[in-house]
């Protein structure tokens, strides 16, 4: 019995979400008094032994050229085989793009009960119960899992990374890898920008900014904070900003530490995508804007005056 933590990688590096997941998986292992182990598919240059710091005792590497891109079928077969070989009873994923593709397949293969969008450690006081976000972040469900094997996908940015001393054993594992049926022909990385999903801080603009030519103040503020930029739906629909910046019920759901909403009214569908943010700042010229009710800090005023001042003040902070 062990917890198996799936470490997602991109371009030969373990993704940021994987560190959070290591802490989460290791904490579950501690709760249950079982081993915490991790698995990486494909070659990475990350120092895997050093991942012991996050509480994991062993990291399995399954080598193979077939892991360069995510083919859910290939990945799921590999992770399930590893889980079976090492006797894992709990398999954890990050509920990111890779996790959404692979985790449900792994669960089905292992006939494991699956909870996605988990946001807290399981509760073992009455069976195996995992809390997950539902209704687009407006509520939580406590879900009981009835199977001996369990698969959990953790919402990114919902568990505190914990570091201690420790070195993990790195163990190559050989399993038969099926050929991929998905042929990736092109990868378009949003370069030079911080990916929205991984950003600790997000600066977001709405229709109140009047037009795409005014986004300079948003970008300046974002760069002063090393933040990603986002926008409301009408802004993306009007092509003022690219679609991948659209957050909300029908766009990306994000959970940064800090979300700064500028010229966004705070419609319920917008809130559904950002209400998991730890701290929300709203800048809006309308004191009645509904967003203030969902905010931690607010300024009533004209974005075109406030935002440049804010950027300047942040730069002073150093």
């Amino acid at each position: 019995m062990s917890v198996l933590i799936f470490l997602d990688q991109a371009d030969g590096q373990i993704k940021k979400s994987a560190y959070e997941l290591l802490s989460y998986g290791s904490s579950i292992a501690k709760q249950k008094g079982i081993a915490a182990e991790a698995v990486v598919l494909g070659n990475v240059s990350t120092d895997l032994a050093a991942l012991g710091k996050y509480g994991v005792q062993k990291v399995y590497i399954v080598d193979g050229a077939g892991f360069q891109h995510v083919d859910a079928q290939v990945y799921a077969a590999a992770v399930s085989d590893v889980a079976t070989q090492v006797g894992a009873s709990i398999v954890v994923f990050s509920h990111n793009q890779t996790g959404k593709a692979v985790a449900p397949r792994v669960a089905a293969r292992l006939k494991a009960g699956y909870v996605s969008g988990a946001c807290a450690l399981p509760d073992f006081s009455n069976g195996f119960v995992v809390k997950k976000t539902v209704f687009s972040g407006k509520a939580f469900a406590n879900v009981q899992i009835h199977t001996p094997i369990v698969v959990i996908a953790l919402n990114p940015n919902s568990y505190q990374i914990q570091e201690a001393d420790g070195v993990a054993i790195v163990a190559p594992l050989s399993i038969a890898v099926a050929p991929a049926s998905i042929q990736v022909t092109k990868v378009n990385k949003v370069s030079g920008e911080i990916p929205l999903a991984e950003a600790d801080i997000v600066v977001s603009g709405g229709r109140g900014l009047k037009g795409p030519e005014n986004w300079g103040i948003i970008e300046d503020l974002a760069s002063s904070l090393h933040a990603a930029t986002a926008c409301s739906r009408p802004v993306a629909d009007a092509h003022w900003r690219p679609h991948h910046e659209h957050v909300g019920q029908t766009g990306f759901q994000i959970a940064p530490n800090l979300y700064i909403a500028i010229g966004i009214s705070g419609a319920i569908q917008h809130l559904a995508g950002v209400n998991r943010s730890k701290v929300i700042v709203v800048i809006n010229k309308d004191p009645e804007a509904p967003f203030f009710k969902a905010a931690d800090y607010g300024i009533v005023g004209d974005a075109f005056e406030i935002v440049p001042q804010l950027t300047a003040a942040i730069k002073k902070l150093g």
Binding site: A107, K111, A112, G113, Y114, V115, N126, V129, V134, G137, K138, A139, F140, A141, N142, V143, Q144, I145, H146, T147, N275, I280, V282, F292, K293, A294, A295, D296, Y297, G298, I299, V300, G301, D302, E305, I306, Q309, L310, A313
Partner: peptide, 24 residues
């Protein structure tokens, strides 16, 4: 393989702290 035990609402924000526009 799973069932929902119960639901909880997300706790609402305790109240926004307003900052004056001339005191960024």
């Amino acid at each position: 393989l799973t069932s929902v035990v119960n639901y909880e609402l997300r706790p609402t924000k305790t109240g926004v702290k307003m900052v004056a526009a001339d005191n960024v």
